[in-house]
Amino acid sequence: MLELATADGRVPADDARKDSPLAVRGLTVSYGEKPAVFSVDMTVPKGSMTAIIGPNGAGKSTMLKAVLGIVKPLSGQVEVFGCPLADQRARIAYVPQRASVDWDFPTRVIDVVLMGLYREVGLLGRLRGAHVDRARSCLDRVGMAAFADRQIGQLSGGQQQRVFLARALAQDADLYLLDEPFAGVDAATEKAIIAVLKSLKSEGKTVVAVHHDLATVRDYFDHVFLINVRRIAEGPVDEAFTAETLQEAYGGRLASTQVDQLSAVLA
């Protein structure tokens, strides 16, 4: 079924979109001549924890990057809190994939978190003690206060992920976009991260995360967005995260063991 951006009845009412921290309409992104994301609509409800789910190469990360303007979409509109992205950047915090940077870069943990405050400080402003205190309290929130002066090259994968989350927290944003925050992290880190995300939700903030572990979707998130180049399904977990929608999103690519696991989860 080809989904048209303007298809009536499927696109939520205009005021729901206006109220949404992140509303996407007709988004198409292409690397070369193969669309990675094709004509996708998405409306993230305010205060939700939304998982973006789909098989490898389904365009999950690309979606986030296009929303943030890191990659240029071919077409489509993105509205953040009902306004164009450029006006609302200060209200968005992004946690990229851990592997996207070189961890041998000569810098300390606290310096990475302080980068979250660069916009606020401005080009010529000075980083003051108050800024450093704030960065430290963000590290404390992810359980990394003792590592503030450590070299980032000495961190484990889970610790790296926590530092990235602390940098996002330092921005004190209203909308948090995370790209695979649980990929390759230890169990303790996963617990720590989800605790922080849930506390953000309880503060009324909105969290959107690309997620790959279907088994934990129900425990961690209240909203899902299924994508495989096109939008497959969107809505509260109970309604949109079903055997049918997963079958549609993953097709034959869901291994039989995964199917078994899922039927256990979905039962």
Partner: peptide
């Protein structure tokens, strides 16, 4: 002196820098 922060940000994590505008 003026450009030191954007240049450092881009050198460490260009994607994050882009996301911040």
């Amino acid at each position: 002196f003026v450009l030191r922060r954007p240049m450092l940000e881009v050198a460490f994590d260009p994607e994050y820098a882009a996301a911040r505008g």
